[in-house]
Amino acid sequence: MKRGTRMAGSRVPLARNPVDRMLWLVGDDAADASALKVRVIARLLLIGAAVENTEALRAWASQPQYALHVGLCALFWIAAVAGWFERYTRYAAVVAAAGMVAHHISAFPLNANHHYLLLLCLALVAFFDHRSDEERSLLLAGLKWIALIGLFYAGIQKVLWGYYFRGEFLAYAIAQNERFSSFFSWLIPADELQRLRAIKPGEGAGPYRVDSPLFMAMSNLSYLGELILPPLLLFARTRTFAVAALLVYVFAIEAGARELFFGLMIVGLILLFAPANWLRRSFPLFIAGYVYLTLLALGWVPRWYFT
């Protein structure tokens, strides 16, 4: 596949067949922009793997696999440091992806979902030669499609399981989870909040329903955002809006779910759809986030709202 030719006034390569056209529906970048994006996202994935495995060590401390995970943690940090240098990034991704495979085997079936996502993204980063414009473009297309499909399916799953149309899931989460109840308390009347929080879990518990139009709207917006916004990433005209809206959306979800590792990773992937400057300028914020999470893992700083 030679992609030297581009349509006038467009960054989309002159597609030769339906597969090519589909692959680059997510947008294509000029060579310098793709180089910048690949460099930044690779660093973020490698650092994310190292920090998260450091954080997870505490949970492994009482397990027989602790020594393995200490070794893996060292490996991830070596990969993260080596990956900072462009000539070693791909090799670092190979090492980190192999480390994630070992991690998955050891942790199964308790694997976090974003660990699968991390493994998939690292494997893609390892698979392509970053010096080649064409391969970088293909790598970015792959990463963007993964983010888009994943976000879209999160909405599809909520529809298929059917707990959002009348707010059952959110009501249950508020009843069971302090984080959700504190975040969503403004959505529902105080007496309803009190009733939900007083429900004792177990057979017959409930009803997990709230009679509040605002609450119902929020519940339905949860999956509608995931169904509507990711497809808007496919169109050049709506792409920037979709990126901005998805960032707000992810921030809102994280305010309830507080899964900062997943949040940072998915934000990095969403920013691949934006002009390269967005990712470059936000890079220090990602690093600040990961430094904080590292210090938190070491017990040197207190927990913050999102952790």
Partner: peptide, 12 residues
């Protein structure tokens, strides 16, 4: 919630 199905927060 498990096994990478993107169904986190879809069910209790």
């Amino acid at each position: 919630w498990r096994f990478f199905g993107w169904a986190m927060y879809s069910t209790p």
